[in-house]
Computed example of a mutant assay.
Amino acid sequence: MKSAKPDNIACSAFDNIGMTANKLDDDGFLITGPLFGHELGPRLENIIPQLKQDSIGSRNLMEHSWCVDLAKLIRGHQRIAPFLSAAAVAVQCNLFEKSKNQNWLVPVHQDLGIAVREKIKHPALTGWTEKEGSIFVQPPDSFLHEMVAVRFHIDECGLDDGPLRVVRASHKAGRLDSHAALAERDRVGETLCAVERGGAMLMKPLLLHASSKASGHSRRRVLHFVFAPPVLPFGLQWRHAF
């Protein structure tokens, strides 16, 4: 694997509200500076500790009104809206929390599953599974290309806090098995994605990404929102759509 050098560390370099969606389409990701003022932080600090979490975080947060409201704020934000379809809806939100005491790593992978209301039999639908009471399925790549994840950072995520490592433009290669994913990572190298507190990282689901354990002493809490077209193929229905 290529080592991380200063020229492949990403931070808020793409914080330009006049930018077109080409940057996201070309690289598969981009990073903004803080989206909101300081008033949002204390509100989230009161809410997050009340959430039921497993070893790495919580899923199904779209069941909470505060999360739906935040998703709508993010979708309409001047730094986010240009990169989403006007019809896009928020379909999922996960909380990921990483710290010295709650530490974990994620190998290189793509985000292939979506949360749906019920199972539908169709040969194009694969990878059915259940997580925290939600049914997940892997739709065709053509649909995944229409989705965008927005990772809202409650805390600053520096290079010691287990930031995402992404393989730039790897989403263009489509769905990759584990061997092809590792080969693409070794060919292209990885970019470390540092994000300011209150900032966001936008990414395409098919972008190869991974993360290491945190080596510092801070917390890295991320609300991972997924925005997608309101209508699913093959008669599928979203579990949540706002």
Rank of each mutant, 00 (worst) to 15 (best):
T20Q: 07
N22S: 15
K23Y: 10
K23I: 13
L24S: 09
L24C: 09
L24V: 07
D26E: 15
D26K: 14
D27G: 03
G28L: 04
F29C: 13
I31C: 03
I31K: 00
G33V: 05
P34M: 07
F36D: 09
F36N: 12
H38I: 10
P42N: 07
P42T: 07
R43Y: 09
L44N: 02
E45S: 12
E45F: 04
E45K: 06
N46C: 11
I47L: 14
I48N: 02
I48G: 05
P49R: 02
Q50V: 03
Q50P: 00
L51D: 05
S55M: 10
G57D: 00
S58G: 08
R59M: 06
N60R: 14
H64T: 04
H64Y: 15
S65L: 14
S65C: 09
L70R: 06
L70T: 07
L70Y: 09
A71Y: 04
A71P: 01
A71S: 10
K72C: 08
K72T: 08
K72L: 12
I74P: 04
I74S: 06
R75C: 04
R75H: 04
G76N: 13
G76C: 07
H77V: 11
Q78H: 12
R79L: 12
I80S: 02
A81S: 15
A81Y: 10
S85P: 00
A90I: 02
C93A: 11
C93G: 03
N94G: 02
L95M: 13
F96N: 03
K100M: 10
K100R: 15
N101R: 12
W104E: 09
L105S: 14
V106Q: 15
P107Y: 08
P107R: 14
P107F: 05
V108Q: 03
H109K: 03
H109V: 08
D111E: 06
L112R: 14
G113C: 06
G113T: 13
R117F: 11
R117M: 11
E118T: 09
K119E: 13
K121N: 12
K121M: 09
H122S: 02
T126V: 13
T126E: 10
E130G: 02
K131R: 14
E132A: 15
E132V: 13
G133I: 04
S134E: 12
F136Y: 07
Q138G: 03
Q138I: 12
P140I: 01
D141Y: 01
S142E: 15
L144M: 10
L144R: 00
E146M: 02
E146D: 14
E146F: 01
M147G: 02
